[in-house]
């Protein structure tokens, strides 16, 4: 951050120097000024009249292809790398160490993460790879929790079925905990779910027999049986994106930074700084001995 601030300051100084170097910057003829504004307005409106050519020219030409008359754009090439030191490098699967942190104090319950997740994986209705819970505590210390439609619609309206006034309310995003001692992996009879050497619990849907034992074994209820494929499914922390140097979809869209993901090998990553810092982090259901790699900041006693 210090370096960044310094750069900003430096650029401001340069700008000021440039301005002061200009001769008579305000001594402009009014007629010339209006002419320039009009030219600019006409030129700008022409961009609106003529649609941008998506098949050639512009910045997108190198990454765009025209297939059956429809322009497709591969976003991964142009998107900036979000997790450093992954793209265009040899991925040593045995030396990776990722962490996911959920900051409860930042979550506003907008449901963007759930929508992004559903769209990323085409999750069937009624099943959830990730969801956001709403906790409300009244003045009698009673806790009311709900999660209509997994939080997909966002929490736009307050609950009206609570007799006392709400004293406190907060939102808790939930997803796969990527346990280091994963019960789901232990119980899978065919090894369809496994821990990859880089610490992700993944599913091989081509091997899964759909016995649902992993669903029973997961203490966090992060798994479900896909009604279409009839195999077990769960959040993968968007492994396919991570391997391309991109953040998980839910992290990408979170407007408040409540979901954080990064490599612990990168000392500049936010997750590294949080995990190595003095702040209090907790995991869900610690007594289960599953050693999750999903950490919670600002975790509350009421959260299970």
């Amino acid at each position: 951050m210090i370096i960044k601030d310094f750069k900003v300051n430096k650029s401001c100084v340069n700008e000021q120097l440039i301005l002061s170097d200009e001769k008579f910057p305000l001594d402009m003829d009014k007629r010339d000024f209006i002419k320039k504004v009009l030219k600019g307005a006409i030129a700008g409106s022409l961009f609106l009249v003529f649609p941008m050519d998506t098949t050639g020219g512009g910045n997108f030409d190198k990454n765009s292809t025209l297939k059956d008359g429809i322009s497709t754009f591969d976003p991964t090439i142009k998107l900036p790398e979000e997790i450093p030191e992954i793209r265009d490098r040899q991925y040593d699967i045995y030396k990776q160490n990722f962490a996911f942190i959920v900051d409860i104090t930042r979550c506003i319950g907008c449901g963007s993460c759930c929508v992004a997740d559903k769209r990323e994986y085409n999750v069937p209705d009624g099943n959830y790879r990730t969801w956001v819970e709403r906790y409300i505590k009244d003045f009698d210390d009673q806790v009311y929790v709900d999660c209509p439609n997994g939080g997909l619609d966002g929490y736009q309206k307050p609950r009206t079925d609570i007799p006392l006034n709400a004293r406190d309310t907060f939102f808790v995003p939930k997803l796969c905990n990527m346990c280091k001692e994963a019960p789901c992996v232990q119980v899978c009879p065919v090894g369809a779910t496994f821990i990859s050497p880089d610490g992700f619990i993944l599913m091989d849907s081509d091997r899964c027999v759909g016995c649902a034992y992993c669903i029973q074994a997961c203490p966090y209820s992060a798994r479900f049986l896909n009604p279409i494929t009839k195999t077990a499914e769960k959040c993968t922390w968007c492994y396919h994106r991570v391997r391309k140097g991109l953040l998980p979809a839910c992290v990408e869209v979170c407007p408040t930074g409540a979901r954080k993901f990064g490599s612990l090998n990168d000392e500049n990553s936010e997750v590294y700084k949080i995990l190595k810092g003095p702040g209090v982090l907790t995991v869900l259901k610690q007594s289960m001995g599953t050693l999750p790699a999903l950490y919670y900041m600002g975790q509350r006693l009421e959260v299970v």
């Binding site: 065919v190 027999v209 016995c211 009839k230």
Partner: peptide, 25 residues
């Protein structure tokens, strides 16, 4: 009848996961 993919049931015998109690069935 319970299995989501019963056609794969022999996977339990052919490629069992030794850590799973169910694999012994």
């Amino acid at each position: 009848l319970h299995l989501g993919r019963p056609e794969r049931n022999f996977n339990m015998l052919l490629t069992p996961s030794p850590s799973s109690a169910m694999a012994g069935f």
